[in-house]
Design a protein around this nucleic acid. Structure first.
Lengths: 214, 214
DNA sequence: GTCTATATCTCGATAGAC
DNA sequence: GTCTATCGAGATATAGAC
């Protein structure tokens, strides 16, 4: 249907973009077709004309969001040779990605929190194509690094969860941090810069082979 | 109002419990009074009779959730002397807590993702009482451990975000993991057991003083 | 393709019987 | 205290003019 966003006409695209913002802010149910129309600069009826129903529109948007996000995460992973630099660039790019596209993040969180029915379906399709499904790509890189002795013999899936999660926590925890340190919002860029270093440090030294076996 | 849940009658409690589940699954806006009434086994009108409006009910539930969750996290933190065992028991208990109360988790995620307006207010109150606000408690334990040389001279706030986040992310990532390893749901207990070890290992060795300075 | 006007529906909330 | 019935706001969706 609207899976290939390139095929969209100009009007369609304006509506679609508006829908991304509105759904992102208010959620599936909270979003109003009126708001989407307003933001796009058209009438409500036109939104229905192009996308038939709110549900169809939402699912089109969601599919697009997943596709885009996965593609971006995939890019963050691809071009690196050794595990150390792979990890470092991945962390850097992933954090930047989230920082620049908070809407994507909120979409993912919302969808996953409500059981991720759409993601499950879409992902089964995506998962078949290794290169389009970053988690699988990361798993392979992790296994290779383990075999080469670049990192310890860790469970790749556990490591995947740990690393991907680590890149996301702060976004999620920010309201709490704001309570503890009222100033942080103003120095957000500094916080993110520091976080990148902190994360790489913790993860890499947690994963790399140890001299002392405890 | 309904802040003290012990005061609730039997009927009230059934409604309240139903509300927790329904709001947890569908979110503030997505939840329907009809669904809450159905789940409680009463009529819609009765829900209004006890809780006046959907908003009031939601806020009562939210306040209760925060109170309970913070209390539980606080308990997971309290009784430990050195940082190592503190971290280990904290991870263990926190993961168990989330495992047994997935609803609490979803509430927190949803509320925080939407900017956590209610949390901000409530937390300012809570933050004053150190013992009722686990994040602050953790910060102190972290600082003390740093000073004593039990762990490196890390930024306490960054560490807080890392540790708290680490204990939560698997829940969030589970749909993705299911796609990668279709079997996991069946062996969830084993996954969680493994995760506790994995996390403690990674975090502790990432935080403790190093012999080799890189 | 885009608009105005309106029909249809969902859902929170209330009235009133019991 | 609990129910049935219903109102009314607000939102989705459609009809039909241009």
């Amino acid at each position: 249907m609207h899976q290939v966003v390139n095929d969209l006409t100009d009007t369609e695209k304006r509506i679609f973009d508006a829908a991304i913002v509105v759904f992102g802010e208010a959620g599936r149910r909270g979003a109003r077709m009126q708001d989407i129309a307003d933001r796009a600069g058209f009438n409500k009826a036109l939104v229905h004309y192009y996308f038939r129903s709110k549900d169809r529109l939402y699912e089109a948007v969601l599919e697009y969001i997943f596709r885009t996000t996965f593609a971006m995460i995939g890019e963050a992973l691809c071009d690196a040779d050794d595990f150390e630099s792979m990890l470092k660039t991945f962390i850097g790019r992933y954090l930047d990605l989230i920082e620049k596209n908070p809407v994507l993040f909120r979409f993912m969180v919302r969808e996953i929190t409500s059981g991720a029915p759409v993601l499950r379906q879409a992902a089964h399709r995506l998962a078949e194509d290794r290169s389009a499904f970053p988690p699988r790509l990361f798993l392979e890189k992790c296994r290779t690094a383990s075999e080469r002795g670049e990192i310890r013999a860790v469970d790749p899936v556990q490591t995947l969860v740990t690393v991907f999660g680590a890149c996301v926590y702060h976004q999620f925890a920010m309201p709490l941090v704001t309570i503890l340190q009222p100033g942080v919002e103003a120095h957000r860029a500094a916080f993110i810069r520091k976080r990148k270093l902190e994360l790489f440090d913790l993860l890499y030294y947690g994963l790399k082979p140890r001299s002392d076996e405890a």
